[in-house]
């Protein structure tokens, strides 16, 4: 069964870019990644699904029901964490969570305590006084306290420290084991890779591809940048898997995908001052996508 079904979902705002003909399905029990650079239309898509804004054309079906027509009904089973969390400043964390729970016809107090404990969140503080990361935690608890069947997360990890991210991911995996479907939007490929089964890639308001994570992993690119004592000869890195090679005096940079030991052996033979190995940014990954398609 499809929990989310987007059919040619289009939203245009005056001049600003919206989204065009977005179509994909998310199956029940899936952790589905939704990835794209900032401003690609991820939040617009999600806000349309939640009928905060209405589609210009096309439709979003959630639990098989039209998201505009049956909005309040389907939202009973949705937990949503917005990308930027803003809450009623003069409330305490506990008050906000109680208020949030009061919209659902079930007792969530146990769950609130449990989640707060897990995320190390102080319930008696004023929301105003919380740091960005702690506000995000309030958002997480708020989104999960009614044990929804579908969790929608818009850039959920920003502001969380790595340890907390880890706990949060474990929490999501646990929910997923219980059968919860998760839509996880992010601009960081690595975190999507860690968690998701499939991803939809969006760029400039259009869907680029829907891929299995396993396929993406085969194209696990790393960006290498190194500063060497002498200029590296142009053909030194002419091995399989090296792309976009640039040699600029003592600085050399390239993208690499393939067996990591191979490249490390190559690097070991150089006299280096400095070395950076990074996740390539999405633009580069997308470039790769376009190349492959052509």
């Amino acid at each position: 069964m499809n929990v989310i079904e987007l059919k040619n979902l289009t939203k245009t705002y005056g001049k600003a870019r919206g989204i065009t003909n977005i179509s994909f399905n998310v199956e029940e029990g899936e952790i589905f990644g939704f990835i794209g650079p900032n401003g690609a239309g991820k939040s617009t898509t999600i806000r349309t699904m939640l009928s905060l804004i209405y589609p210009t054309s096309g439709s979003a079906m959630i639990f098989g029901k039209d998201s505009v027509k049956y909005g309040p009904e389907i939202k009973k089973e949705i937990g949503y964490l917005p990308s930027e969390v803003f809450y009623y400043d003069n409330m305490k964390v506990k008050e906000l969570l109680k208020y949030s729970a009061s919209f659902y016809k079930k007792d969530c107090s146990k769950r609130i305590t449990q989640l707060a404990e897990m995320l190390d969140l102080d319930l008696n503080k004023r929301i105003d006084d919380l740091s960005f990361g702690n506000k995000k935690k309030v958002g997480i608890v708020q989104g999960l306290l009614h044990e929804p069947k579908l969790i929608i997360l818009d850039e959920p990890t920003s502001g969380l420290d790595p340890l907390m991210q880890q706990k949060f991911f474990e929490l999501l995996k646990e929910e997923n084991k219980k059968g919860t479907t998760i839509l996880f939007s992010s601009h960081i490929l690595s975190e999507v890779q860690k968690l998701c089964d499939r991803v939809a890639i969006i760029k400039e308001g259009e869907l680029v591809n829907v891929e299995k994570i396993s396929t993406l992993k085969e194209n696990n690119h790393k960006r290498f940048k190194l500063e060497s004592q002498t200029q590296v000869p142009h053909d030194y890195f002419k091995i399989k898997g090296v792309q976009n090679l640039e040699v600029n005096n003592h600085i050399t940079s390239f993208l690499y995908s393939g067996n990591i030991n191979m490249i490390l052996q190559k690097l070991a033979q150089l006299e280096l001052y400095n070395l950076w190995i990074e996740e390539p940014d999405l633009e580069e990954i997308f470039m790769h996508y376009y190349e492959k398609e052509n």
Binding site: E73, G79, P82, F86, Y88, F103
Partner: peptide
């Protein structure tokens, strides 16, 4: 104005309500 609309609109409550 206070950007709490995303919080409220994600709840099972219609705009008329």
């Amino acid at each position: 104005r206070d950007q709490t609309a995303e919080f409220l609109m994600a709840k099972p409550i219609s705009r008329s309500q």
